[in-house]
Simulated assay, not measured.
Amino acid sequence: MPPESTLDSADLDWLTLDDGESVVWAGNPHESSMLPSVLMGLPLCLVLVGFAVIAEAYLSRENTQFVVTTDALYKKTGIFSRDVQRIDFEKVQNTSYSQGFFGTRFGYGDVDVSTAGGSGVEMRFGSVPDPKGVQELVNKRVKAGRPSDTETGESKGDVLDDILTELRAIRHAVEADANADDVGDIDSGDVDADDTEDAAGRGSAVTRRVSDDTFSDGR
């Protein structure tokens, strides 16, 4: 079952969609993700610093939004400014999710997205409710956006056959070049120095043997 969206279209006035693109899921960090900041900020409220810690955590959560559409992933952050990041599904290489101590108990966690050619995590849906469900939804959309064997008209077996055919053609071309080089060496009379020395040595040995036989017959 896909995770339930926690945002509606009125909250997504910053989002610009392409033609035919629609929102599948939208959410922001879980309310309980503020708990660590609250626990740390309350004792500091006596010196007013705690109020700033809690306020920053609240504003950060309220201004962070995550969106999954039929075409891509979106992330909006920023309290006094706005930063929008988009990753198309065709670029997604890997996804994973994790939950910390509080996340395991309150049902939220991080969903990390890596892209092909990227270095490390390119986008993180931080502290989202039901991180496993969000990851499964992203994976489903990634698979839906990739062409199937039926759409491309080629199966894995067809691709392997094409690769083997190309390898055979390369092998035949290399062997033909090697044979042509051997014939060229013979026609041009190219002989290695070592071969010449061996031939000369064998000729000298034959000459000495003939001379010895002649000398023996004369005696």
Rank of each mutant, 00 (worst) to 15 (best):
S9M: 14
F51A: 12
G145L: 05
D149T: 15
S32Q: 13
G78P: 04
R219M: 13
D162S: 08
D83L: 08
D213Q: 13
K143H: 04
R124W: 02
S81Y: 12
D195C: 06
V128Y: 04
M1P: 00
A180W: 08
W25M: 04
W25Q: 02
T214A: 12
D181V: 15
T104G: 09
F89E: 00
I186N: 06
V84A: 01
K140A: 12
R171H: 10
C45L: 15
D195F: 13
I87P: 00
L167P: 00
N94G: 03
F51I: 15
G126S: 11
G109T: 10
G117K: 03
A193T: 11
D185L: 15
M40G: 07
A176S: 12
D88M: 03
A26E: 00
S60R: 05
F125V: 11
L164Q: 05
A52E: 02
L42S: 06
S155F: 07
P3F: 09
D213M: 14
S211A: 14
G41P: 03
L12I: 13
K140P: 00
S37P: 07
S127Y: 09
D13A: 10
E56T: 15
I79P: 09
S37Y: 14
G50W: 11
E151M: 09
G218M: 08
F106R: 06
E21D: 05
A173R: 07
T64N: 02
V142N: 01
D83K: 06
E154T: 14
A10Q: 06
G50C: 11
V92E: 01
A57D: 06
Q135P: 01
W25I: 05
R141N: 07
S96Q: 06
K140N: 07
L164G: 00
G201W: 10
G100T: 07
H172D: 15
L46Y: 10
S22P: 04
V68E: 02
G145F: 03
I87G: 00
G20R: 01
A200L: 13
T207K: 06
S37W: 14
D162Y: 04
T104P: 01
E21C: 04
A144V: 06
S216G: 03
V210K: 09
E56N: 11
D182A: 08
N94M: 11
I186Y: 10
T70I: 15
V128L: 04
Y97T: 05
V113Q: 10
G41D: 07
L42K: 03
N63V: 07
V47Q: 05
E31T: 15
G100L: 04
R61I: 05
A26M: 00
E31F: 14
A176N: 08
C45T: 15
F51Y: 14
